[in-house]
Each structure stands twice: as C-alpha cells, then as structure tokens.
C-alpha cells in the first residue's frame, strides 16, 4: 500500500509540474491544484499507514497503547485542504478576470509587466 501511494504521489507531482509548465492559464491552475493534492497525499503517507487501529483511548485507559494511526497528519491534511480550497477559488476567479481583462489564455503573451520601460 505504501509503495502504491508513493508512486501515486510521484505521479501527482509530475503531472502537476508538467501542467504548470504549459502555456495555458487554465492548465496552470489545474497543475497547481494537482500539485496541492500530491502534497496532501505525501503528508498522509509520511505519517505512516496503520490499518484498523484508530487513535482512541479506551474508556478505562489513560493513554493510547500499542500500534495506532497517527492523528496529526490527518489534522494537517484537513488544514491544508481547507487552505488550498480557499486559494484555488481565488485562483479561478483570478484567471476568469485575467481572461476578461487581458483577452488571452496564453501565458507567453503576458509580458507587459516585464517590459524594461
């Protein structure tokens, strides 16, 4: 399972970076979204995968015993997902606006702010 997830993370990173390198604005945003998902998966993977042992303290116990799934990465992923959700919605509005104002989807033509003048 770990190997599968590791390969999956690699694919997501590769796909994300590939899309970011394309010239289209829409593909750029999709690339960032995919890259963000790759990171979330990486955090999940880094916490270690444990099957069938939720991190719950039994009613008569004082602390967790034995092997248990680490709850911290899940909390981290949740936070990261929420944040990236906000940023992605901003991104989508931004590209819509950019398309309206600049009348182009091609990143290579967006070089007005880089003019030396």
């Amino acid at each position: 399972m770990e190997i599968l997830l590791a390969i999956m993370t690699g694919i997501l990173y590769a796909a994300g970076i590939y899309l970011i390198l394309r010239r289209s604005l829409v593909k750029l945003i999709i690339g960032i979204v995919i890259l963000g998902n790759g990171v979330n998966l990486l955090i999940f993977l880094m916490g270690g995968l444990v099957k069938g042992n939720p991190p719950l303290i039994p009613a008569d116990g004082k602390m967790l015993e034995g092997v248990f799934a680490d709850p911290v990465p899940q909390a981290l992923i949740l936070t990261a997902i929420v944040i990236s959700f906000g940023l992605q919605s901003f991104a989508i509005v931004l590209i819509k606006r950019a398309y309206k104002v600049l009348k182009t989807d091609d990143i290579d033509t967006m070089n007005k702010t880089d003019d030396i003048k």
Binding site: L25, L94, V101, I107
Partner: peptide, 12 residues
C-alpha cells in the same frame, strides 16, 4: 489590467 497580469505571476 497591469495589476491582474502582475497578480497572475505573483500568485503562481
């Protein structure tokens, strides 16, 4: 116009 274009670069 120029702000949006700068923002795309900054954002990415």
């Amino acid at each position: 116009k120029i702000q949006i274009e700068g923002a795309v670069k900054y954002f990415t």
